[in-house]
Design a protein around this nucleic acid. Sequence first.
DNA 1: TAGATTGTTAATCGATTAACAATC
DNA 2: TAGATTGTTAATCGATTAACAATC
Lengths: 206, 206
Amino acid sequence: MTKIHKIPDVVIKRLPIYLRYLQQLMERDIDTVSSQQMGEDLNLNPAQIRKDLSIFGDFGVKGMGYRVTELAEKLISILGLDKQINIALVGVGNLGAALCQYNRYQNTSTKIVAIFDGHPAKVGQKIGNLVVHPMEDLSKVVKELNIKMAIIAVPAQAAQGVADQLIDCGIKVILNFAPTLIQVPPGIKVQNADVTTELQSLAYYL
Amino acid sequence: MTKIHKIPDVVIKRLPIYLRYLQQLMERDIDTVSSQQMGEDLNLNPAQIRKDLSIFGDFGVKGMGYRVTELAEKLISILGLDKQINIALVGVGNLGAALCQYNRYQNTSTKIVAIFDGHPAKVGQKIGNLVVHPMEDLSKVVKELNIKMAIIAVPAQAAQGVADQLIDCGIKVILNFAPTLIQVPPGIKVQNADVTTELQSLAYYL
DNA sequence: TAGATTGTTAATCGATTAACAATC
DNA sequence: TAGATTGTTAATCGATTAACAATC
């Protein structure tokens, strides 16, 4: 039996950074890159980059570095970005609506495919090419559109309730923009992206 | 001479979480809280909370815990949130405009007080109670309004140029929503908040 | 006083980095 | 082959956690 190493979150967070960098190299028709060069450009230690990548396989060529296109493909496959990932957005206030529009024009495999709001006045409105659903439709739409991930962009006091509903529908991964901590059972991954909290911690550095 | 410990970023990021929690307790008229209780509610180790807080002073009372209001005030003071922090927002696309509106209704000391855009068509437009300035006014407005912090919400290819201009104006702290790494000289603090990258790393957990 | 809880030390855990044999 | 660079081990660094004397 192979020993499964738990891969640290901090490594996973670096993978999209590597990927984006490699895609920039591809645009400049650069074929190979060394960990040394990557480290300089990304402000990271080359040994760390090699170690991160070696967790997933031997992607490099000794004496030569990494083949850019090949490594990018590997990272896309590791992250699971080789097929579209359907996302539900809950809460179409200023921030939610903007995230929806923003995502629409991004050429990325993580796609918002359905939007929801608990406020009856919002239901039926169009944001980009999507119509706002009522919360009652959540379970049905999540199943129909094979939605795997959710973004919470509702006010703080509504966030926990929304999270509970999402989890009930089988959602396992949540990006939370609400300025509050949400409690979830084991096996559910929540990433907080609260702007107010970020600004407050940045205030310290002034 | 007192030895100055470099306080880890990871500790600074937890302080606003503690603060928000204490403010919730205040709303519920709770006077004191133990690190044990805080740890349960915030999913953190109590020893870690005590250690974090003890870096800044002896805020607790043995046998009793922490006085909620007092600790909240201390954290506000440590973070520098006891006076308004003026922020410049650069880039009023969907996301920038939403951040501006969102910030407007947040009751927090970090305030967006001026907005800028490099696109002539945007200049003069009103977002909430603010008028979009041209980039040429950046230096002047930053001085006039005593702006200390900036939010970048421009497309990736414009981000580095904007960052350079901000740094030229004396800005030391930047929250970057553009999906690209920006290179800055030592002494400048950049926090990345790119939604696409966050979604891509979350994809891994599916 | 007895019970509770802090602040802090020491132990543990985990992540980063340096160093280098393997090898393209 | 000589030079370059990987993958990986060992050393280092730093953060988390357990344990407990101090003390309210």
